[in-house]
Design a protein around this nucleic acid. Structure first.
Lengths: 226, 226
DNA sequence: CGTCGAATGTGAGCGTTGATAACATTGCCG
DNA sequence: CGGCAATGTTATCAACGCTCACATTCGACG
């Protein structure tokens, strides 16, 4: 051909947005129009993604892609992105609560329960900073569940303190105040780890444990005279 | 005309993105091609916007619009959005630091300085939650300044504690540990306010003051025996 | 068993955003 | 004054959240 030296340049623009079927499993007789369990699948991968990459890493479209589904599908299950995040936060809070309960379950007296709770609290923050952050920064109305959970834990803590006071282990100061102070200490420690405080970046969970123990101990004994 | 009953529907799509000159002042002989002080203008409005609306509220394009400038102009001064946010965080941190210094300046002994610092810390969080959050969540490399500031403050706190120990006001426990615990308590209180803890949502700054005082007092006296 | 509505998924597209590249204008330094 | 660096503009991308009209499927009810 005599035109072999001439080139016609063609730019082809392809929207890659909806090439979703590649994400479907290639092996079996899949490709059912309905996913079957999309809501849970989205929640699951979102949870994992937040835990490993942080909240910023999640996008509705990426989740859809991952699930092998069109980018509009997720909106059938979550009204908007915030609702999805709320659901992830709820899941994370449940997990958090589970660990706290697990930690205090084997303790007998109020004081060791008290300490075990602090340790578990700080450890969770150290091990799952993004989830911890999500739990405490989410403040949507629909996530009222979170508020209830936190409040419930607060009441439990107060009960623990009163128990300690009855046993003569804790002085007769306003239990609410004591609860607040110890919550603040624990939450502050956890937050400093998550916020990457210069002194505390990337702690092992064992170090986190030591730290929580030392700090709560210090709170108990006090650091000086008023 | 005989076509008076016939309608031709025309949909006109207009990109409104680059209609920027409306934002320029209409009065004077402005309209200089160069803004003259764009970097500072952007920083200023970003700072205000974060403080009043939160970090999520800021977008490069909105800032450009506000400054009366094309949407690409900001990138001449900030490599990307994160750099801009880092700069805002730095500004906020400077302001924060200023307030802390101001609060401790008038105190004589170590213990009252110690308390005044806690109070100022918590008050700033209560009054500027979004700025507080930005300061502590930013962790970019370029924002190393933040780390230095925080570290400097930590050293100052430790010095304060040692001073207190020398005066016999604080027991001879590892000063680092004491610093950490008191930092955690204060930071935790501040964070609980910012994170809208059920017990502490929307505190007045006077309430914040009371709270910080009570909590630090409790830390000093301790809440029980080890 | 068939049918019909509700639940769920698809495709296309709107408007916004962060970011980049090529080009225009200006200030300033020699 | 001339030229170069700083600064601003225009046009354009890709990605995102979200919506709408339409398609497919499931399941309850006759």
């Amino acid at each position: 051909m005599e035109v072999s030296d001439a080139y016609i340049r063609v730019d082809i623009k392809v929207s890659v947005d909806n090439i979703f079927w590649y994400a479907r499993p290639v092996g079996g007789a899949e490709k059912s129009y309905h996913h079957g369990n999309l809501r849970e699948a989205l929640l699951e991968t979102a949870f994992g993604l937040v835990d490993s990459e942080g909240v910023e890493a999640i996008s509705m479209r990426a989740l859809a892609r991952e699930a092998g589904v069109s980018s509009a599908a997720p909106f059938r299950h979550f009204a908007d992105k915030q609702v999805l995040l709320d659901a992830v936060a709820e899941k994370a809070a449940a997990e958090f609560e589970r660990k706290l309960d697990e930690a205090t379950a084997q303790c007998s007296d109020a004081l060791t329960q008290f300490r075990a709770m602090s340790v578990a609290y700080v450890r969770f923050a150290a091990e799952h900073p993004a989830l911890f952050d999500l739990i405490h920064s989410t403040e949507s109305i629909s996530a009222r569940f979170l508020g209830e959970v936190k409040d419930e834990r607060r009441l439990k803590l107060i009960a623990l303190i009163i128990e300690g006071q009855n046993a003569g282990l804790i002085p007769e100061v306003d239990p609410e105040l004591i609860a607040l102070a110890s919550e603040a200490l624990t939450h502050g420690l956890a937050r400093m780890i998550v916020d990457r405080h210069p002194r505390l970046r990337s702690l092992s969970s064992e170090e986190a444990r030591q730290l929580a123990l030392a700090a709560t101990h210090l709170l108990q004994t006090g650091i000086g005279l008023s």
